[in-house]
Every structure is written in C-alpha cells, then in structure tokens.
C-alpha cells in the first residue's frame, strides 16, 4: 500500500501577507490550512480557541476586515491582503480593551474558553455602535450579536451585562463628543 504523503507541504505552501493586529505579517500557509491553524500553530497566537472546528461554536471567532468570522472555516490563503484581528490585539498600549475589563470585573468569564471569541463578536458590535447616529444599548441586540458564540459556563447573563456596560461607555463617549462639538459650533 502506498503511503499518503506525510508532508503537509506536499502542495506547496503559499506565502500569505496580511495585517495581523495592525502589523503586517507573512506566513507560508499550506493551502488546506485554515486561519485558526495558522494563528495557533504558526504564529503562536493561541488566544483564538478551537471548540468544534466546523463552525458550530464560535470559539475561534476573529475579525477579518472588521467583521467577526470563524477562523476554523476560513482558508488561510484567502486572508491575503486583508486585516485580521485576534483577541491578542484587542487592548491598546498595554491597557486592556474596555470589554476585557468589564468581562473580568463582572465575572463574565468563568472558564474563559469561549471568551476570546465572545470578545471579538462584542468588539465589532461596540465599533459599530460608535458609528451610529443615536446609539442605544439594548440587551436583546447584544444577545443577537453573541448568537454565534456558545458559552457553557455563564448562562450568558453576565456576558450580556459586561457587553452592555462597555457599550454604555461607548454611548456616553459619543454623547460627550456630540455635546462638545455642539459647544464648539456655538462658539
């Protein structure tokens, strides 16, 4: 019996260049590798988790060009030229992202395994909220935003709360900015 090729580079790995958490990176990705494999096994960014590997749980959620998608279902070679954000890139300058802070303080992460994926879905929601004209924070909308991220520990209550608290900060900031620009307009 002839052995199948043991070498995953049997089909030549392709050089893929993309923005990863704001910085350019180039990897040699075997064509059948998904983004989660490249992140975890090649780039050692193990914050992105795997819970099912076929699109059923959301643990592997990352953002590609801003949109939360499943890294286990995304062929790595297809992120060429795009921007990828993972949980490791969430905070700025050593400061945790507001969501990381509220999740930690409010007990929204129990085992923490679903959390990186949750945070990526939630951060997209927060970014979107910041662009809205008259943003409001709504628990039903938050639940829908997190609808593709399974959590087995929390019953979601504290997760929705943590997202809502961070979202309210966004809304308040938007309101302050609006007031400030109003003031400026009056000057």
């Amino acid at each position: 019996m002839t052995a199948p090729s043991p070498n995953h580079a049997a089909r030549a790995a392709t050089l893929v260049t993309f923005q990863l958490n704001g910085e350019p990176v180039t990897v040699a990705a075997p064509p059948h590798w998904t983004l989660v494999e490249v992140l975890r096994y090649q780039l050692n960014l193990t914050g992105t988790k795997q819970g099912c590997d076929k699109g059923d749980c959301g643990a592997c959620t990352v953002r590609v060009d801003g949109a939360p998608v499943l890294a286990c279902m995304t062929l790595a070679v297809l992120v060429q030229g795009r921007s990828v954000e993972t949980v490791e890139g969430l905070g700025v300058g050593g400061e945790p992202h507001p969501l990381q802070r509220t999740f930690a303080e409010l007990g929204a992460a129990q085992c923490g395994f679903c959390t990186p994926g949750m945070l990526m879905s939630a951060s997209a929601y927060l970014d979107d909220l910041a662009t809205r004209d008259a943003p409001t924070v709504d628990a039903v909308e938050i639940s829908a935003v997190l609808g593709g991220n399974l959590c087995r520990c929390t019953g979601y209550t504290k997760i929705v709360q943590a997202v809502a608290v961070a979202a309210r900060e966004v809304v308040e900031r938007a309101q302050t900015l609006a007031e400030m620009s109003n003031d400026e307009a009056m000057l």
Binding site: T46, K49, F103, A104, E105, G107, A109, Q110, T115, P116
Partner: peptide, 22 residues
C-alpha cells in the same frame, strides 16, 4: 465584589490552556 483573579490573563489571550502549550 470581584471577578476571577486570573481572568484578565485568560481573556487577553496570554493564559495558556493545555492545547496552547507546545
């Protein structure tokens, strides 16, 4: 009132679960 003492480490992707080790 406090959350898990070690959660920030996990939810910044720094903490290592078993499969994160090589």
């Amino acid at each position: 009132r406090h959350g898990r003492i070690d959660s920030l480490e996990l939810l910044t992707g720094v903490g290592k679960y078993t499969d994160d080790l090589t």
